[in-house]
Deep mutational scan, measured.
Amino acid sequence: MDVFMKGLSKAKEGVVAAAEKTKQGVAEAAGKTKEGVLYVGSKTKEGVVHGVATVAEKTKEQVTNVGGAVVTGVTAVAQKTVEGAGSIAAATGFVKKDQLGKNEEGAPQEGILEDMPVDPDNEAYEMPSEEGYQDYEPEA
């Protein structure tokens, strides 16, 4: 019985440690998101679009440190934060509304985080759909 109880105690310690790591990862992701939003706020009209992409990228980098179902929630929060940063930029006159959601080359930025393969159960990952990809044929 002692062996059984000791095993359960060790398992509990492992769960607590994993929860603490997840909590730490979420806190880091939130900190990076805040950094990115402050970065966007300090940019001029020309830099705002690039700044919004930076927020998304920093958040995406930190999301990889967070495991399990938390990833889905962090990704949703990050996307809403990026959308909010863009709205703030438009409201303050840093950028025109028609410039939001495009990178410096004018290509749409939507789907940055949505296409990231995420499995809350950590069982399997699927690649994003290939609808947006084109076949590449090298020139002879």
Rank of each mutant, 00 (worst) to 15 (best):
Y136K: 09
A78V: 12
D115Y: 12
E139C: 01
K60P: 01
V95Q: 04
S87L: 11
E137C: 08
L8E: 00
G31Y: 11
P108Q: 13
V3M: 07
T72D: 04
T54M: 03
K34N: 01
T33I: 15
V55Q: 00
G51C: 12
K102I: 02
A91W: 14
D115T: 05
E130M: 08
A17I: 13
A107P: 12
P120M: 02
E57L: 05
G47Q: 08
V37G: 01
M127D: 02
Q62P: 03
A107I: 03
S129T: 10
V49Q: 10
N122H: 10
V55W: 13
V55P: 00
G14T: 11
D135T: 04
M1I: 15
G51S: 07
V52W: 13
A29N: 01
G51D: 01
P120H: 10
F4A: 00
E61N: 05
S42F: 04
E114T: 02
M5L: 15
E35A: 11
A17P: 00
Q109P: 01
T59L: 15
V49D: 01
Q62L: 13
A69C: 05
S42N: 09
T22F: 15
E20L: 11
K96Y: 12
T44K: 01
D135W: 09
A69F: 14
T92Q: 03
G7Y: 15
E104L: 09
K32Y: 15
K45A: 12
T72Y: 02
G36C: 11
M127I: 11
A69V: 12
M127E: 11
A27F: 12
A90M: 14
P117N: 07
V63D: 01
E131C: 04
A30Q: 01
V95T: 07
E13K: 02
Y125C: 02
K60C: 09
N103Y: 13
G51Q: 12
A90N: 09
Q109F: 11
S129K: 02
G36V: 07
P117K: 11
S9H: 10
Q134C: 11
G106L: 12
V16Y: 15
G14F: 14
V26E: 00
P128E: 12
L38F: 03
V37T: 03
D119N: 09
S42L: 04
Q79K: 12
V3D: 09
T92G: 11
E137V: 02
T33F: 15
K10D: 02
K60Q: 04
G111Y: 03
V48W: 13
D98W: 12
M5S: 05
S9T: 14
T33W: 15
K96N: 13
S9Y: 14
V3E: 12
E20W: 04
M5C: 13
A56H: 02
V26M: 02
G7P: 02
G25T: 06
V55T: 02
K12F: 07
E104I: 09
V55S: 01
V52S: 02
N65C: 13
A17T: 06
S9A: 13
N122W: 13
A11L: 10
G68W: 15
V26C: 06
K60Y: 15
E130L: 06
P138R: 02
A91P: 04
T44D: 00
Q24L: 07
A30L: 11
E57R: 08
K45V: 14
K80C: 10
T22S: 03
V37F: 05
V70N: 02
G31K: 13
E57V: 06
E139M: 13
N103W: 09
G68H: 05
V55R: 01
Q62A: 11
A89P: 01
E126D: 04
K32P: 00
V74E: 01
E110L: 09
K60A: 04
V71T: 04
K45D: 00
M5H: 15
I112A: 02
A78E: 04
E131S: 12
K34C: 10
H50S: 06
E110R: 08
G132K: 11
T72A: 05
G47W: 15
Y125E: 07
Q62K: 07
N122R: 03
V118R: 03
G14K: 11
K102L: 14
G132L: 12
K97V: 05
Y39T: 04
A124W: 07
I112L: 03
E131T: 09
